[in-house]
Design a protein around this nucleic acid. Structure first.
Length: 482
RNA sequence: GCUGCUAUAGUGUAGUCCGGCCAAUCAUGUCGGCCUUUCACGCCGACGACUGGGGUUCGAAUCCCCAUAGCAGCACCA
């Protein structure tokens, strides 16, 4: 159908990925997925599809402060919408015993120790490249302290497990970073616990245990990759291959989960799918297809340079998908009635899709009066053509137009350079509100639009819209793009 | 500040590893034209970039150095 022979964008080869790969998407269940997540989700997905293998969804919920119980559900829904090829789901809070066991092993082989220093004191020692007193404790002592962490002898902040790294490492962030901590509150919504692994530990444990071969993630994790190397080395495990992509600046929508949540609570936003937000559900509501999101993310690729996300490029991807399928209808924004003198009743037949006649036609009965967009009535305009109907002559008495039948000839309309405009029979219309990120446009559309609920259609000469809600007293549609 | 990474048109991207085939790819965007009973789609064309300065070399977008800019990390978050 499309005449474009555009090459499918191919991602660069992944090092060591000849055979099947195992990759993962690892969101934090703190809210619905947004465009930022979509990049990691789509990139990993594309590679698994390219090489074959497994794609693990791993819910990283080891910080009870950052868990929204509802998000377990919403994240899965968003992933289903995106159409990711997830092959298995793992939730970290289910795996605490596994982490505890590995921690014990790590203490036994000398790779970690329990530190009971005051946090501020440790910070100073670290800045000074000096070992804290706990670092020299024998294994037995560490195991004993570890047991005390688990059995509630220690309270929050009184003890933590640290990975032995290089205290003289030039980057202080590398020096004996923490692996487990105690949290007395808040309670975890899914599991009873008070000793939690920190991300760097649980990620290493899971990536290794699940057999993850390649990791694509943002460059904010570069330091974590270096930290995690120490754990891999302590265990004698092999680290996966990493690719860290750059920061993606996204303008025009709200992405911060806390900001979104607060806005919804205050009534500023209607919900997680408010079209001013950058969530997957907001995009869905606006008529953006999941394939378009994935394609746009793959086009961006895995470069480590910081980029700015382009809505234009996303819309272009979406239009490629939506244009061949969207039925066409008339929507008249800001309508005015025009009684057309001298015109016999007509029945207009308009194609549902201009390049697919098989799809059929809609019929519009002209009986004398039509609705046309006010914006078309520029004083001085002598002729307009009502699309699929006939020409209309306009006589101006000052700023007041009067309309009369101007013949059926399209050629005449062309010769007169008359604009071909959308219209509606005044006796058969449906109120329609078009919502855009800037505000709402009131108008009227063809009654047949009510059969398109939930679909993306095109309002001719206006743009693509998603039919959001249909009720006896009207249609609400969301603006998608031109 | 410290540690590290990066720099191609308005935007995204290919080329950079292994210097010549790059007077730099593709997409998007903008503008113009054609087509068209939509200001859509399609087609044609135009516009538009190797951050700056040195160096190496017969030859540099590609290698080296310096400058500048941006970013990441420097949490008992992920």
């Amino acid at each position: 159908m499309s005449g474009k022979h555009e090459k499918k964008k191919v991602l660069p080869e992944l090092e060591g990925a000849e055979n099947d790969v195992v990759m993962r998407f690892a969101p934090n269940p703190s809210g619905p997925l947004h465009i930022g997540h979509a990049r990691a989700a789509a990139l990993n997905d594309a590679y698994v599809k390219q090489y074959g293998g497994r794609y693990i969804l791993r819910i990283e919920d080891t910080d009870p402060k950052r868990v929204d119980p509802e998000a377990y559900q919403t994240v899965q829904e968003d992933i289903r919408w995106l159409g990711l090829g997830i092959t298995e789901v793992v939730t970290q809070s289910d795996r605490l015993p596994i982490y505890y066991d590995l921690c014990k092993q790590l203490i036994e082989n000398g790779g970690a120790y329990v530190c009971t220093c005051d946090n501020e004191v440790f910070k100073e020692l670290k800045a000074d490249k000096t070992a804290c007193p706990c670092r020299g404790n024998p294994v037995e002592k560490n195991l004993e302290l570890w047991q005390k962490m688990l059995d509630h002898t220690f309270k929050e902040g009184e003890a933590s497990v640290r990975i032995k790294t290089d205290l003289s490492h030039p980057d202080p962030a590398m020096r004996d970073f923490p692996a487990f901590r105690i949290l007395d509150a808040p309670p975890h919504p899914k599991v009873k616990a008070h000793v939690y692994p920190l991300m760097n530990f649980s990620v290493v444990a899971d990536d290794h245990l699940l057999g993850v071969t390649h990791v694509i993630r943002g460059k904010d994790h570069i330091a974590n990759t270096r930290r995690q190397k120490y754990i891999y080395d302590h265990f004698g495990w092999q680290q996966p291959v990493y690719r860290h992509y750059g920061r993606m600046g996204i303008e025009g929508v709200v992405l911060s989960t806390s900001q979104m949540r607060a806005g919804i609570k205050e009534g500023l936003y209607s919900g997680w799918d408010d079209i001013r937000l950058g969530t997957m559900r907001a995009l869905a509501r606006r008529g953006i297809l999941p394939e378009a999101v994935k394609n746009a993310m793959i086009a961006i690729g895995i470069g480590d340079v910081d980029i700015s996300f382009s809505w234009d490029n996303l819309y272009a991807e979406n239009k490629k998908l939506v244009d061949p399928t969207a039925n066409r209808y008339f929507f008249v924004p800001d309508p005015v009635e025009a009684k057309i003198e001298g015109a016999e009743p007509h029945t207009a037949h308009a194609l549902l899709h201009p390049s697919d006649e098989a799809r059929g036609k809609r019929t519009l009965e002209f009986t004398g009066t039509v609705l046309i967009p006010k914006a078309e009535l520029v004083p001085g305009t002598a002729m307009l053509r009502l699309k699929d109907l006939f020409n209309v002559k306009i006589a101006w008495n000052g700023d007041t137009p009067s309309f009369s039948y101007g013949g059926d000839s399209l050629a005449e309309a062309r010769a007169a350079k008359a604009r071909i405009i959308q219209w509606l029979p005044a006796q058969a219309t449906m109120p329609c509100t078009l919502l855009t990120q800037e505000g709402e446009v009131k108008g009227a559309c063809e009654p047949a639009v009510k059969g398109e609920a939930g679909k993306v259609i095109q309002f001719e000469r206006v743009g693509f819209v998603k039919v959001d809600a249909v009720s006896p007293d009207g249609v609400v549609a969301y603006w998608t793009h031109k």
